[in-house]
Design a binder for these strands. Structure first.
Length: 111
DNA sequence: ACGTTGACGGATT
DNA sequence: TAATCCGCCAACG
């Protein structure tokens, strides 16, 4: 498998695993796909593919980074899936997807 | 072939 | 808390 093909394939696969009502950050997706730190590649993967639950990928802290009208649509789609917002960001406490069998540092446990 | 871009993130200052 | 820097790497011009 070519590096390129493998990378996007894995990223797309990871995105497809995010369940309805949950969201993941670009960094989470990259990490889950096996490319820690490659958050920017997630953006490319989203651009080059269709049929993905793209609305479930948000920025660090739950912030919607997609600009303009598209960002508004993303928010609407998420809300229709039951995702709650706190101001301009997703309530990650409740909706951040916990990747199965994948441990990552999850910021200090204390809160 | 080479420099820039991109729906980023995290560390550093 | 905010501004800046750097790593990521495929796609584009």
């Amino acid at each position: 498998m070519r590096t390129s093909d493998g990378m996007f394939a894995r990223i797309r696969s990871a995105i497809r695993k995010i369940p309805r009502g949950k969201v993941a950050t670009y960094g989470d997706v990259a990490y889950a796909a096996g490319f820690p730190g490659a958050a920017r590649q997630v953006v490319w993967a989203l651009h080059g593919s269709r049929g993905l639950p793209w609305q479930r990928v948000v920025g660090a802290g739950g912030k919607i980074l997609l600009p303009g009208i598209q960002g508004a649509e993303q928010r609407l789609r998420l809300q229709s899936e039951g995702v709650a917002f706190i101001g301009l960001r997703v309530d990650m406490k409740q909706h951040r997807y916990a990747w199965p069998m994948l441990r990552k540092k999850r910021g200090k446990t204390h809160r």
